[in-house]
Protein backbone atom coordinates (compact mmCIF):
# COMPACT_ATOMS: atom_id res chain seq x y z
CA UNK A 1 0.00 0.00 0.00
CA UNK A 2 1.57 3.31 -0.97
CA UNK A 3 1.30 6.56 0.93
CA UNK A 4 -1.60 8.01 -1.02
CA UNK A 5 -3.56 4.78 -0.85
CA UNK A 6 -3.01 4.69 2.90
CA UNK A 7 -4.18 8.26 3.15
CA UNK A 8 -7.29 7.46 1.12
CA UNK A 9 -8.07 4.48 3.34
CA UNK A 10 -8.00 6.68 6.40
CA UNK A 11 -5.01 5.08 8.07
CA UNK A 12 -3.75 8.45 9.19
CA UNK A 13 -7.01 9.77 10.58
CA UNK A 14 -5.90 8.69 14.03
CA UNK A 15 -3.20 11.34 13.88
CA UNK A 16 -5.33 14.24 12.77
CA UNK A 17 -6.47 17.18 14.84
CA UNK A 18 -9.71 15.44 15.70
CA UNK A 19 -8.13 12.89 17.99
CA UNK A 20 -5.72 10.09 18.72
CA UNK A 21 -6.34 6.53 19.71
CA UNK A 22 -3.18 4.51 19.69
CA UNK A 23 -1.77 2.22 22.32
CA UNK A 24 0.69 3.84 24.71
CA UNK A 25 4.41 3.07 24.79
CA UNK A 26 4.62 2.98 28.57
CA UNK A 27 5.03 5.66 31.19
CA UNK A 28 7.83 7.59 29.59
CA UNK A 29 8.94 10.55 31.68
CA UNK A 30 10.89 13.45 30.14
CA UNK A 31 13.88 12.84 32.41
CA UNK A 32 14.12 9.25 31.23
CA UNK A 33 13.44 10.00 27.58
CA UNK A 34 15.99 7.71 25.99
CA UNK A 35 18.50 8.27 23.24
CA UNK A 36 18.11 5.20 21.03
CA UNK A 37 20.66 2.46 21.64
CA UNK A 38 21.60 2.54 18.00
CA UNK A 39 21.12 5.67 15.95
CA UNK A 40 20.47 5.11 12.27
CA UNK A 41 21.88 7.29 9.47
CA UNK A 42 19.62 10.01 8.10
CA UNK A 43 17.82 9.42 4.81
CA UNK A 44 18.30 11.55 1.74
CA UNK A 45 14.54 11.94 1.42
CA UNK A 46 12.06 11.26 4.19
CA UNK A 47 9.59 8.51 3.37
CA UNK A 48 6.09 10.03 3.85
CA UNK A 49 4.83 6.84 5.49
CA UNK A 50 7.71 6.80 7.97
CA UNK A 51 7.14 10.46 8.74
CA UNK A 52 3.42 9.93 9.39
CA UNK A 53 4.22 7.01 11.65
CA UNK A 54 6.88 9.00 13.51
CA UNK A 55 4.77 12.10 14.11
CA UNK A 56 1.96 9.88 15.36
CA UNK A 57 4.34 8.29 17.87
CA UNK A 58 5.68 11.71 18.88
CA UNK A 59 2.18 13.06 19.54
CA UNK A 60 1.53 10.00 21.65
CA UNK A 61 4.80 10.57 23.55
CA UNK A 62 3.78 14.18 24.19
CA UNK A 63 0.52 13.06 25.77
CA UNK A 64 2.35 10.47 27.87
CA UNK A 65 4.57 13.23 29.17
CA UNK A 66 1.64 15.32 30.25
CA UNK A 67 0.23 17.17 27.26
CA UNK A 68 -3.54 17.47 27.61
CA UNK A 69 -3.83 17.24 23.83
CA UNK A 70 -1.30 16.79 21.05
CA UNK A 71 -2.16 16.94 17.39
CA UNK A 72 -0.26 16.39 14.20
CA UNK A 73 -0.24 19.54 12.12
CA UNK A 74 0.87 20.70 8.71
CA UNK A 75 2.60 24.04 8.19
CA UNK A 76 -0.66 25.39 6.78
CA UNK A 77 -2.15 24.98 10.26
CA UNK A 78 0.29 27.53 11.71
CA UNK A 79 -1.33 30.92 12.19
CA UNK A 80 1.14 33.78 11.89
CA UNK A 81 0.61 37.21 13.37
CA UNK A 82 3.40 39.66 12.73
CA UNK A 83 2.11 42.07 15.38
CA UNK A 84 2.77 39.60 18.21
CA UNK A 85 6.57 40.05 18.47
CA UNK A 86 6.00 43.80 18.74
CA UNK A 87 3.62 43.25 21.65
CA UNK A 88 6.21 41.05 23.34
CA UNK A 89 8.90 43.63 22.70
CA UNK A 90 6.88 46.14 24.71
CA UNK A 91 6.73 43.67 27.61
CA UNK A 92 10.44 44.05 28.27
CA UNK A 93 11.02 43.67 32.01
CA UNK A 94 13.25 40.62 31.41
CA UNK A 95 14.76 40.74 27.92
CA UNK A 96 16.21 37.46 26.73
CA UNK A 97 17.58 35.83 23.60
CA UNK A 98 14.12 34.39 22.91
CA UNK A 99 11.98 37.32 24.12
CA UNK A 100 11.45 38.26 21.41
CA UNK A 101 13.87 36.40 19.12
CA UNK A 102 15.76 38.45 16.54
CA UNK A 103 16.72 36.92 13.20
CA UNK A 104 17.87 39.85 11.05
CA UNK A 105 18.93 37.83 8.00
CA UNK A 106 16.54 34.91 8.23
CA UNK A 107 12.85 34.46 7.72
CA UNK A 108 11.31 32.19 10.32
CA UNK A 109 8.05 31.92 8.43
CA UNK A 110 9.87 30.58 5.36
CA UNK A 111 11.67 28.08 7.55
CA UNK A 112 8.50 26.87 9.25
CA UNK A 113 6.68 26.56 5.97
CA UNK A 114 9.45 24.23 4.74
CA UNK A 115 8.32 21.53 7.17
CA UNK A 116 5.74 18.93 6.26
CA UNK A 117 4.56 17.83 9.68
CA UNK A 118 4.71 18.95 13.28
CA UNK A 119 3.07 18.51 16.66
CA UNK A 120 0.91 21.15 18.32
CA UNK A 121 0.15 20.57 21.98
CA UNK A 122 -0.90 22.18 25.20
CA UNK A 123 -0.78 21.46 28.90
CA UNK A 124 -3.33 22.60 31.45
CA UNK A 125 -2.42 25.61 33.56
CA UNK A 126 -2.93 25.65 37.33
CA UNK A 127 -6.36 26.97 38.32
CA UNK A 128 -6.27 30.70 38.90
CA UNK A 129 -2.91 31.09 37.21
CA UNK A 130 -2.48 34.51 35.55
CA UNK A 131 -0.86 35.14 32.18
CA UNK A 132 2.66 36.20 33.11
CA UNK A 133 3.63 37.47 29.68
CA UNK A 134 7.36 38.17 29.74
CA UNK A 135 7.56 37.62 33.48
CA UNK A 136 8.65 37.63 36.18
CA UNK A 137 6.81 34.55 37.40
CA UNK A 138 6.65 34.88 41.16
CA UNK A 139 4.88 31.63 41.97
CA UNK A 140 7.23 28.61 41.70
CA UNK A 141 4.30 26.28 41.03
CA UNK A 142 3.29 28.41 38.07
CA UNK A 143 6.88 28.52 36.91
CA UNK A 144 6.90 24.73 36.97
CA UNK A 145 3.90 24.70 34.63
CA UNK A 146 5.89 26.64 32.02
CA UNK A 147 8.91 24.45 32.74
CA UNK A 148 6.85 21.34 32.12
CA UNK A 149 5.74 22.64 28.75
CA UNK A 150 9.34 23.37 27.75
CA UNK A 151 10.38 19.91 28.90
CA UNK A 152 7.80 18.26 26.69
CA UNK A 153 8.68 20.42 23.69
CA UNK A 154 12.43 19.85 24.00
CA UNK A 155 12.00 16.13 24.61
CA UNK A 156 9.87 15.79 21.48
CA UNK A 157 12.37 17.85 19.51
CA UNK A 158 15.23 15.69 20.75
CA UNK A 159 13.34 12.51 20.00
CA UNK A 160 12.65 13.80 16.46
CA UNK A 161 16.34 14.55 16.00
CA UNK A 162 17.40 11.03 16.89
CA UNK A 163 14.70 9.62 14.61
CA UNK A 164 16.63 11.31 11.81
CA UNK A 165 14.51 14.46 11.63
CA UNK A 166 17.55 16.58 12.42
CA UNK A 167 15.95 19.91 11.52
CA UNK A 168 13.19 19.58 14.13
CA UNK A 169 12.41 22.90 15.75
CA UNK A 170 10.48 23.53 18.97
CA UNK A 171 8.56 26.47 20.41
CA UNK A 172 6.89 26.78 23.79
CA UNK A 173 5.23 29.58 25.80
CA UNK A 174 6.49 32.33 28.08
CA UNK A 175 9.82 34.06 28.40
CA UNK A 176 12.57 31.46 28.95
CA UNK A 177 14.47 33.85 31.20
CA UNK A 178 11.59 34.13 33.65
CA UNK A 179 11.28 30.32 33.64
CA UNK A 180 14.86 29.03 33.74
CA UNK A 181 17.03 31.98 34.70
CA UNK A 182 14.74 33.82 37.07
CA UNK A 183 17.55 34.64 39.50
CA UNK A 184 20.08 35.72 36.88
CA UNK A 185 20.96 39.39 36.39
CA UNK A 186 20.75 39.01 32.64
CA UNK A 187 20.27 36.50 29.86
CA UNK A 188 23.82 35.30 29.28
CA UNK A 189 22.97 34.17 25.72
CA UNK A 190 22.44 37.83 24.78
CA UNK A 191 26.18 38.35 25.27
CA UNK A 192 28.15 37.72 22.12
CA UNK A 193 29.99 34.39 22.10
CA UNK A 194 28.04 33.09 25.06
CA UNK A 195 25.73 30.11 24.75
CA UNK A 196 22.33 29.66 26.31
CA UNK A 197 22.63 28.26 29.84
CA UNK A 198 19.74 25.89 29.28
CA UNK A 199 19.96 24.83 25.62
CA UNK A 200 18.27 21.50 26.26
CA UNK A 201 15.31 23.10 28.00
CA UNK A 202 14.57 26.57 26.74
CA UNK A 203 12.84 27.45 23.50
CA UNK A 204 11.26 30.64 22.13
CA UNK A 205 7.60 31.17 22.84
CA UNK A 206 5.26 30.71 19.92
CA UNK A 207 3.82 34.19 20.41
CA UNK A 208 7.21 35.91 20.64
CA UNK A 209 8.17 34.19 17.39
CA UNK A 210 5.04 35.53 15.71
CA UNK A 211 2.65 32.60 15.93
CA UNK A 212 -0.92 32.91 17.16
CA UNK A 213 -1.21 29.82 19.36
CA UNK A 214 -4.60 30.95 20.62
CA UNK A 215 -6.10 30.91 17.14
CA UNK A 216 -4.45 27.56 16.41
CA UNK A 217 -5.98 26.21 19.61
CA UNK A 218 -9.41 27.41 18.51
CA UNK A 219 -8.91 25.99 15.02
CA UNK A 220 -8.09 22.63 16.58
CA UNK A 221 -11.51 22.61 18.26
CA UNK A 222 -10.03 21.98 21.67
CA UNK A 223 -12.01 22.68 24.88
CA UNK A 224 -12.62 26.43 25.20
CA UNK A 225 -12.69 26.31 29.02
CA UNK A 226 -8.89 25.98 28.88
CA UNK A 227 -8.75 29.56 27.65
CA UNK A 228 -10.06 30.87 30.98
CA UNK A 229 -6.42 30.78 32.07
CA UNK A 230 -3.18 31.38 30.14
CA UNK A 231 -2.68 29.11 27.16
CA UNK A 232 0.39 26.92 27.69
CA UNK A 233 0.80 25.69 24.13
CA UNK A 234 3.86 24.50 22.28
CA UNK A 235 4.80 23.26 18.87
CA UNK A 236 7.51 21.07 17.43
CA UNK A 237 7.90 21.08 13.67
CA UNK A 238 9.39 17.69 12.96
CA UNK A 239 10.30 17.35 9.28
Amino acid sequence: MDFYEALKNGIFTQYTLSGFNRQGLGNMKPETFPVPEEIVPVSAETDPLVLENNVGRLAENAREMGAAKAAVISPEDIVFDESLPETMRADDALPSIHWPPEYPLDNLKDALMSFRRGIFLYIRAEPGMPDYGGGPIDDPVHRDCYRKLHEIVTAIESRSFYMGHYLAMGFAAGNCRSIFCADADRCIAMTRSKPCKEPYKSRPSMAAAGMDALQMFRNAGWPPDVLKGPLLAGMVMVA
Binding site: H98, P101, Y103, L105, D106, N107, L108, D110, A111, S114, F115, Y166, L167, M169, G170, C196, E198, P199, Y200, S202, R203, P204
Partner: peptide, 10 residues
Protein backbone atom coordinates in the same frame (compact mmCIF):
# COMPACT_ATOMS: atom_id res chain seq x y z
CA UNK B 1 16.16 28.12 5.49
CA UNK B 2 15.73 25.80 8.48
CA UNK B 3 19.42 24.96 8.73
CA UNK B 4 20.58 28.35 10.02
CA UNK B 5 17.81 28.31 12.62
CA UNK B 6 19.37 25.19 14.14
CA UNK B 7 22.27 27.48 15.10
CA UNK B 8 19.92 29.92 16.82
CA UNK B 9 17.17 27.79 18.38
CA UNK B 10 18.57 27.08 20.89
Amino acid sequence: PRVRFKCMIP
